[in-house]
Each structure stands twice: as C-alpha cells, then as structure tokens.
Amino acid sequence: MSTDTTTKDSTEYTRALLTTAEPRRRRTDRIMAGLIWSAFALAMIPLVSLLWTVLFSGAGRMSVDFLQYSMRGIFGGDPSGGIYHAIMGTLIITGCATLISVPIGILVAIYLVEYGRGPLARAVTFFVDVMTGIPSIVAGLFAVSLFTIFFGPGARFGLIGAVALSVLMIPVVVRSCEEMLKLVPNELREASYALGVPKWLTIVRIVLRTSVAGLTTSVLLAVARVIGETAPLLVAVGVTDSINFDPSEGRMMTLPVFIYRQYSQGQAPCREDQVNCVADIALQNAWGAALTLIAIVMILNIAGRLVNRWFAPKTR
C-alpha cells in the first residue's frame, strides 16, 4: 500500500515537473500542433472545393441511362448518350496496364531491396528514376512507334495504351514499393533466416506480408496516377463512341479522353424550337464522367482496403 502511494506521488511529481518546468517546450508543442492542424485545414479547402465541384456538377447528369449507354449515334445537344463505352475502356486498359506493371514493379522493388548489389542494382535505381521523368505524351508516342513496327501505321488498340500507361506506372510502383519494403525491420528477416527459412520464402511470407498495406497503397497510387492519363491514350488508342471490349483490336474510349473531348466540344447550337437539345450537354457529360471516374477509384480503394484486411498480419 505504502509503496503504491509513493509511486503515484513520484509519478505525479515527475509529470508536474515535466509539464511546468519548461513552458517554452510546451509552447513549441502547442504552436506545432496548431500549425499541423492549420496545414490540414488549408489543404482541405481546395480539396473539398474540388470534390464539391465535381459532385455538384456531375450529379445532375448521373442516371442509369448515362452509365449504360454509349455515345454511338449521339450528336449535337442530344442528352440521351452515355459513358458506358468509356467506363469499359478505362477499366480494360487500366486493368491491362496494372497486370503488366504491378508484377514487374514489385519484383524490381524486391530485387532492389533484397538482392540489389553491384552495378546492375545501381543502374536499375538510376533508370527507374529516369523513367519517372518520361512526359506522358512521350510514353504514348513511344508505345505507338513500338507497335507500328509490328502492326504497320494506323495501329490503334487498347493494348498500345496499356503499354504506354505501364511505362508511366512501373516507376511509380517501383519507387513507392521500394520505400515500403525498406520499412520492414531487418530483425524480422534475420529472425526468419535464423529459423532456417530460405530467402525466397522469407520474402514472400515475411517481407511482403508485413508490408502488404504499404504495397497496396503504392499500387493504388500508381493506378490512380495513370487512370486519369489523357494525352498518351489520345495518341495510342484513339477515340470512338461505340462499345469495344477487345483490347487487342479496334479503338477504345476512356473516361479522361472522353472528358477532354467533351470539354473541347463546348456549346451545342440549339434552336429555340428544338426539343431534346441541351446547349451545354457536352460540359455536363464531362463532369458526369469525372464523377464516375472518381467513383471507380473509390471502389478500387475500398477493394484495396479489403485486400489489406485479409492479408495483413494481425498485429493490433
């Protein structure tokens, strides 16, 4: 009993000492907390304004028809078109790009963190850095030139776009996954080796699992980075207003390209007696498509979080 009280007393004494002794430190602490809160508030203003604009301008156009029809045969101020073709195009092309980039990206990150020694590793690090600097339109031109070697001029199909996006996506995957893998404490690896677990199994079962949350964030960031790309897809995949599911044949529409084209189209000339004509339909379509694109990313994010929950080691 008596020892208990002494402990409590001394704890309180220490706490009092710590909190009163140096008001300067406490002031700094409070100022920094204030700064961090205000940084956050400051960041929220444009972000909320942006989300609000998209939501507000896009919601009016949103409907079941808008989501399940294409723009085939729609022109002028006709408001009955939709973005189904662009949604499919975005999902298929981004999906292909992800299938190409994520395995390569993660393997390269593993190579750099776990195996990378010597000139090859240095070269890879160096060139991944260089790759982050490829302007997106150059990636598109590169992909087009590559495929024209095999398919002749005029080749435009989804896979070309997927390759262009991969060129942009791989360095993002590598850079951020590398960072995440580095965060896995060496103690875990050493413990695993000490138990006789071979290196590849340590990587697969220990390193990757420990960092799975970070890896998922990295991949989602990389997907997010390319899902909104416009310029490379415009040159590599072209545009269409019909539905196409085949990435190896024919043009495809994607949401960002759709948004850009609709924005560029501007006003439709509607006569006063014309029914079924909305003058600013193109801009409405653009905002509606932007909202849809954000919704798609949101769904992917939720899926990513579920993946995290299933695979991440239960530590807490």
């Binding site: 942006l50 989300l51 964030t217 909104g228 932007a290 694109l293």
Partner: peptide, 12 residues
C-alpha cells in the same frame, strides 16, 4: 479521402 484525391485526373 486523400487517396481518392490522388486519382482525380488532371483534366478535371
């Protein structure tokens, strides 16, 4: 929310 914002296309 922040993750979501990273995905807004530059056209928007």
């Amino acid at each position: 929310l922040v993750d979501l914002l990273a995905a807004i296309p530059s056209v928007v």
